[in-house]
């Protein structure tokens, strides 16, 4: 009878973070038709699409209006100062890629007539207040992709 082989195998110790698991979207014009959102963000502008046909402001940015199905949409600025509607702080149970950030604050920010979710930087949960002003902030990954956050720090005079 032949001897049964027993071979040890090695798996790679680390693998590159798969692109879908880093949470940040693919932002350039080769990958998305809303790439202007991200190029505007690089210029420190938070924008979204508004329907030229029916006037509806759409968030997240779209290529077709969900109210009238027009694809005639324009980019509008939402401003750079928002108001905190609700907030919490992630203390346990963060996903991969966010674990090193714990604890971090998350909020719903009223801005430009919308209520959007966002990371709230420069803040401790205990110091935040419903209704307080927060300032737009842009974060950039080392590969050049960008996203918005808000900063809770008071302006230094």
């Amino acid at each position: 009878m032949k001897k049964v082989e027993f071979e040890k195998l090695k798996r790679p110790e680390t693998i590159k973070l798969p692109s879908m698991l880093d949470f940040y979207p693919l932002e350039d014009e080769k990958n998305t038709r809303i790439s202007p959102f991200f190029s505007n963000l690089k210029e420190r502008r938070l924008t979204t699409t508004r329907c030229e046909e029916c006037g509806k402001v759409l968030w997240p940015p779209r290529i077709v209006c969900s109210s009238c199905f027009s694809d005639d949409l324009e980019w509008i600025d939402l401003g750079t100062e928002g108001e905190l509607y609700a907030f919490t702080e992630m203390r346990l149970g963060a996903p991969l890629g966010f674990v090193d950030d714990v604890p971090f604050c998350i909020g719903i920010v009223k801005i430009g007539g919308l209520s959007i979710s966002a990371r709230i930087d420069n803040a401790k949960y205990e110091d935040l207040k419903i209704g307080q002003k927060v300032q737009l902030k842009v974060v950039e990954l080392d590969d050049g992709r960008v996203f918005y956050r808000f900063d809770a720090a008071k302006e230094t005079p």
Partner: peptide, 8 residues
Amino acid sequence: EWDGINGL
């Protein structure tokens, strides 16, 4: 892409 990305 718009909520989860914030840790939500």
